[in-house]
Design a protein around this nucleic acid. Structure first.
Ligand SMILES: [Mn+2]
Ligand SMILES: [Mn+2]
Ligand SMILES: [Zn+2]
Ligand SMILES: [Zn+2]
Lengths: 137, 137
DNA sequence: GTGATTTTGACAACCATTATCAATAAGCGT
DNA sequence: ACGCTTATTGATAATGGTTGTCAAAATCAC
């Protein structure tokens, strides 16, 4: 049976305290800074479990890193993500859902799923970068 | 200036001969099987260049591997991909383009890009799997 | 509390991708 | 055609995220 450990709870809380998407490594770093001695492998395992249970959303960053986020919305939705600071907006996109279903059906595809993510610079980061600040400071 | 080499042309042709999306490693393997002595690093570079020039499309597979495909359509478009056999249909989706732009603008995001891919089982694979065949045979 | 079983975590292994850099070769001027 | 400049190649090392290993520690049913 599945056992409850403080490590899994720590990962859940750390993920909740994070604004946007975050990598396993970054979350492990954040936990360490709070004094937690949790191991890196454990963070990977906990995040994988959360994603499998639907408690967290995951996506592949454009450079192939897996990112995780605790979602406030329970149902199916998508994300608008700042590629500089990670700020994330959850998006309900009925329009795109319908489009995806239609496209698959029109071509005889079954068991269709879709990946829909929008990356950009949030208003704040746009301002900062225009002022000559460095990205990801 | 940019020079023309048989290696780049070999990668272009190998990519054209491929039905669906393929990884750099797999393409390198395919080239080797035809007797080509091309180096792996060169395949990575050539694919990166093709993608940068818009001659190839690239996407991150669900497990974080970069996949490439020679596009017949020159403009921006998306893909409907069979997760079993790799068969790919190119999709023009003005509706989704407009949606992505609107979503970004509505939230003050700039420099927006989007990832939109639909994965499913093509008609043929649906039939085969229903008949009890194994996936990815 | 005891013990079977799960979980952890330091570390190694893995694997895709990128950086090195000496050797090679494209292509311009001659 | 011939050098010469310089982009390109490719064997190899390095990088970096992720997963596997396995003995030690922790959980929980009894
Ligand atoms: Mn959707
Ligand atoms: Mn698009
Ligand atoms: Zn931002
Ligand atoms: Zn198929």
């Amino acid at each position: 049976m599945k056992r409850n450990t403080w490590q899994r709870e720590a990962v859940r809380e750390a993920l909740d305290d994070t604004e946007g998407f975050i990598s396993a490594q970054a979350l492990h770093g954040a936990l360490h800074q709070t004094g937690s001695p949790i191991g890196l492998a454990t963070v990977y395992r906990a995040l994988g479990d959360l994603a499998a249970n639907g408690e967290a959303d995951s996506l592949q960053s454009p450079d192939g890193e897996a990112l995780y986020r605790a979602c406030s919305t329970t149902g199916h939705h998508h994300h608008l993500i700042c590629r500089n600071c990670g700020l994330t907006v959850e998006i309900a996109a009925d329009e795109v859902e319908a489009w995806a279903k239609r496209v698959a059906a029109d071509h005889g595809f079954t068991a269709a799923a879709h990946v829909v993510d929008v990356f950009g610079l949030c208003a704040n980061c746009t301002k900062l970068l225009a002022a000559g600040e460095q990205p990801l400071a």
